[in-house]
Design a protein around this nucleic acid. Sequence first.
DNA 1: GCATTATTCACCCCTAGAGGTGAATATGTT
DNA 2: AACATATTCACCTCTAGGGGTGAATAATGC
Lengths: 101, 101
Amino acid sequence: MLDVTLQALADPTRRAIVARLAAGESRVTELAAPFAISLNSVSKHVRMLERAKLVSRRVAGREHFISLTPGPMDEAIGWMTQQKALWAWRLGRLEEVLDHG
Amino acid sequence: MLDVTLQALADPTRRAIVARLAAGESRVTELAAPFAISLNSVSKHVRMLERAKLVSRRVAGREHFISLTPGPMDEAIGWMTQQKALWAWRLGRLEEVLDHG
DNA sequence: GCATTATTCACCCCTAGAGGTGAATATGTT
DNA sequence: AACATATTCACCTCTAGGGGTGAATAATGC
């Protein structure tokens, strides 16, 4: 799923949505408000975040409440951290990564 | 540059290249060897990793030695970690992220 | 000089994605 | 019932990306 996660986060609009959701769940319309793009486009962005399981949806009447599910980010963080660790280990300075990497 | 970094890492072939480079620098041909795709395609993948500054190139004669530059991953790791932290903080369980996130 | 090796350049094809608009669906309000 | 709101569906356009092939460029080896 790393593909889907990283691709989902590669788009600035979607990262802004994620950042917004870190502050709490919100409706699609609220998510769309800050952007100059159409509500429809935001809806599609949300769908891609859903596909990446970075958000989940709670439907209450006609409103869809989107909330963050940061779990998949762990895998991405883990992969990058591991690559960095291997690289640093080969260079003989593993401490650099373990200390503040 | 988060866009470029995450997009570069979103492709499995490029992640495999990065993983290979964590073990040490290597030539484009060596990088291409494990893949079923053409050398040309691998060359393009390397170019995208270069654009993301995840790798750098040292030209020695006709050989191009590619090596990992994991710096940009810090920014990506930092962004995700921060989002997770904000989210967890709002939920009142910051320790979850600080301990093993 | 000539052939071989390493890599890129210049194209082509095809799909995915980001944007749009207008209609459909579903719920809420009066 | 009639209207308004929230969201998605269905389509269109355009560009970027991943794949390919064949030629060009550059360096090595003979």
